[in-house]
Simulated assay, not measured.
Amino acid sequence: MSQPTPQRKATRRDMYVAAACGAFVALMVGASYAAVPLYDWFCRTTGFGGTTQVATAAPTQTLERTMTVRFDSNVMPGLPWQFEPEQNTIKVKLGEVVTVYYTVTNQAARETTGQASYNVTPLTAGIHFHKINCFCFTEQTFARGEKREMAVVFYVDPKLAEDAEHDGLNTITLSYTFYPVREPSRVKTSQTSAPETR
């Protein structure tokens, strides 16, 4: 039986190296596509970076401890909107479900679409700030000159009272920034309806 020649050994080795490199590149490409949704999931789960939580129901208790919630609004260049909260601050009890409104006016002579990003400060409070409904969950499309009130329904989790890290916390700032959407999705969104508060 003949032994493989040095040339055949080198060819096999090159094939293994090429296959390993190809597998590595495929793994890296897959990881880069998965990174964004995984990071988003991580932030939503842990409240990392001030990411708020999404709730499907109101909490079962309300505490007497109150929190001042400040509202901040920003619009990035390229989106000709006026965007502001109807009130700058409110006081809420832990566990109290509240609805607040922002007013948006499209100052362009054409239809425009925006999507809001959001977070809270201090960043560590994100795990305790729960939204039941929010205009920020979807793209918002406005006709030229259209003005609209948009609601956000939220509560501050009563579990914040058990979090020693937040013993001295008495103010949370909810911040929104609207970004222009160049290619809006096919489904146009209208005003997000807010569920009734208790």
Results as ranks from 00 to 15, higher is better:
1 M>F: 10
3 Q>F: 11
5 T>N: 03
7 Q>F: 11
10 A>M: 11
14 D>T: 06
15 M>G: 05
22 G>W: 09
23 A>P: 06
28 M>N: 09
29 V>D: 02
30 G>K: 09
32 S>F: 06
32 S>K: 08
35 A>F: 10
38 L>N: 03
39 Y>N: 06
41 W>D: 08
41 W>Q: 03
43 C>N: 11
45 T>D: 03
46 T>M: 07
48 F>Y: 15
51 T>F: 10
51 T>H: 11
53 Q>N: 04
55 A>I: 12
56 T>N: 10
57 A>L: 07
58 A>K: 05
62 T>C: 01
65 R>G: 00
66 T>L: 00
68 T>Y: 01
68 T>S: 05
72 D>P: 01
74 N>M: 07
78 G>D: 13
78 G>R: 08
80 P>H: 13
81 W>N: 03
82 Q>V: 11
84 E>V: 04
85 P>H: 10
88 N>V: 11
92 V>I: 09
93 K>H: 13
96 E>R: 03
96 E>D: 04
98 V>D: 10
99 T>A: 12
103 T>R: 14
111 E>V: 12
112 T>M: 15
113 T>N: 08
117 S>M: 09
121 T>F: 04
121 T>Q: 02
121 T>W: 01
122 P>V: 07
123 L>N: 04
123 L>G: 01
124 T>Q: 05
125 A>M: 01
126 G>T: 07
126 G>Y: 06
127 I>H: 02
128 H>L: 03
130 H>L: 12
130 H>W: 15
132 I>L: 15
132 I>D: 06
133 N>I: 01
137 F>K: 05
137 F>M: 09
138 T>P: 01
138 T>R: 14
139 E>H: 07
143 A>M: 06
146 E>D: 02
146 E>K: 04
148 R>K: 12
148 R>H: 03
149 E>K: 15
150 M>E: 10
156 V>A: 01
158 P>I: 02
161 A>Q: 10
164 A>G: 05
164 A>F: 09
165 E>C: 02
166 H>D: 06
167 D>Y: 14
169 L>S: 09
181 V>M: 13
182 R>Y: 11
186 R>T: 13
187 V>Y: 13
192 T>Y: 10
193 S>W: 09
